[in-house]
Simulated assay, not measured.
Amino acid sequence: MTATGDLEGKVAIVTGAANGIGRAIATRFVAEGAKVVVADIDTGGQGVAAKLGGRAAFFTTDVSDPAQAHALVDFTIEHFGGLHVLCNNAGVSGGLRRFLDDDLRDFERVVAVDLYGVMACSRSAARHMVDHGGGAIVNIASGAGVTPGIGMLPYRAAKAGVVQFTRCLAVEVGEHGIRANCIAPANISTDINAAFDKTTVTRLQPLPHQGRTRDIAEAALYLASDRAAHVTGLVLTVDGGMSLGTPPRR
């Protein structure tokens, strides 16, 4: 992709950026001129930041701990001199169990990371943005939080919470020049989704190809940039049309 400098002069945080979608978003943001803090509990994020050069830095963060979320924002401001964009991407999926067989052992961790972590990071970032000209918050939810389905109900419920939280956040902070939007990916080619059969997955969506992490990065770039200056409260599905329904296949 050709860089256009859409984030030149901006400072961003991307959580869960050691792998997959988060890494792709951090890479795209740096290519567009942003300085980026790669935040993750996985110290592999150090290598990601190193490859991105001096415009990136790594900060170990468990987003489910509000104190660590606050420390992340403080580090970003001290290291790069500000904060304009927060991308809440960190998440865990939990088990694949059907509900009647689920002992809900994953519930607390899934909700703590996928929903509470989004709220904690957003609060810390927004408190800074309020006094510094506004900003953009981009939350990564999931198609599982938009369209009903079977299995992984704690995950689906947490991601649905992210969708509703984003819309409410947009109403709460709009007066301060802060935009809050949400991306709902599905069927993206990542290590987490490697176990799913590609042929089966793509038969469930109108577009007959599996999504790539860069598809989500492009959507995040748009919502983070001034191109989306009049866009807030949006839930952008990037799912090959899967949420529309299963198409006929010859």
Rank of each mutant, 00 (worst) to 15 (best):
D114Y: 09
T200P: 00
V163M: 09
R97V: 06
Q210V: 15
A3T: 14
E32Q: 15
L169A: 15
L7A: 13
V63D: 00
V171H: 01
G47C: 07
S189Q: 09
A194Q: 13
A125K: 03
T61K: 04
P247F: 10
G134T: 03
L83W: 09
L72P: 05
G117S: 08
A18I: 04
Q68W: 03
Y155P: 02
M1C: 11
G117I: 08
N89G: 06
V162L: 08
V110M: 12
M119R: 06
N89W: 10
G240L: 07
D239Q: 14
K10D: 01
G240C: 08
V30Y: 03
Q210I: 15
V14R: 06
A217P: 05
N193Y: 01
G174C: 01
G5P: 13
K51A: 14
G54F: 00
I25L: 03
V110P: 06
S93L: 10
A56G: 11
D215W: 08
D226L: 08
S124R: 13
A17Y: 06
Q164L: 14
L86C: 13
G95M: 08
H209T: 13
V36R: 07
V173I: 03
A219K: 05
G174S: 04
T147L: 15
T60K: 09
T76W: 05
A3R: 14
L115V: 03
G91W: 04
I21C: 11
R156N: 07
R167I: 14
A26M: 02
L221T: 12
V146N: 05
I178F: 09
S93G: 05
A160D: 05
